[in-house]
Write a protein that binds this DNA or RNA. Sequence first.
DNA 1: ATTATTATTGAGATACATTCTCAATGGAGC
DNA 2: GCTCCATTGAGAATGTATCTCAATAATAAT
Lengths: 146, 146
Amino acid sequence: MRPETQQFMKFIETKGLLFTTERKSVAEEVFSTHDHLDAEEVLKKLKSTGSKASRATVYRTLDLLVESGLVEKIDLGEGRSAYEHTAGHPHHDHLVCTVCGEVQEFEEPLIEQLQEWACEKAGFRAIGHSLNIYGWCAKCKLAVKA
Amino acid sequence: MRPETQQFMKFIETKGLLFTTERKSVAEEVFSTHDHLDAEEVLKKLKSTGSKASRATVYRTLDLLVESGLVEKIDLGEGRSAYEHTAGHPHHDHLVCTVCGEVQEFEEPLIEQLQEWACEKAGFRAIGHSLNIYGWCAKCKLAVKA
DNA sequence: ATTATTATTGAGATACATTCTCAATGGAGC
DNA sequence: GCTCCATTGAGAATGTATCTCAATAATAAT
């Protein structure tokens, strides 16, 4: 069991919930990669490894993972969203390729700072934010030129 | 007919399409306010003013309006999106209140600049972007305290 | 141990925004 | 008027996510 899954177990038990096999397998799946996974991908991977976790359980467990703070839900626009685990990952924003769908990360601490100022100015109390830039990734740019 | 609708007409005709009553009424509706409208709101307003434009036509015309550059489609996250006309509006980002649903705008040219740099660094060619901050607007913050 | 209580689950129903299909409509030009 | 093709509307289909509810599994009580 991965250390992150251990942490999740602690979170679940502290909340007075049960750390079931299904919850464990969803967590292990999410923690197994640094890629951005969407719920459907998690479900598919679980199916292929023999787990019988249902779609509903996958969504429910992903919500719990987000609540635990170990996983971040990112809104990729147009109703798509993905999950990634936060361990050892500072906050970052996303470059979404509209050609191949790939999602790259980028960091810009100053942008975060400027956002905070904008909120202060507007009397707004921020809870979360999402910044996506849509366009062509380096690979797809080349592919078109060629 | 509003001047923006005139421009839209020109766009439609230049494209070799027909400037129909339905397209005209959708455009007039969108240009009638500076608020952020979603497709369903446009449809409802049209229904109430006697127009018989269908949902499909509303969506199709909104796409044309975006293509013309006179209207911007903004992704508000969680699958919601809204439209606003761009005339006389510099680019801006959005503060989305998760309590009352209100959408405020804010401008921060430096953020735009930083985004461009981030793209350059990653070899990414940006086409569009969306920055939303979610949280409590000033009004809802007060309402909870009271 | 047996029973009662509660949490969790899966399958499918439902919701929702959006897009698609396709037959019917209706201008534009001959 | 007739032909042609763009446009339209009604409803079906899509995709993502949530909800319902009976069945199941775990925990607590006796």
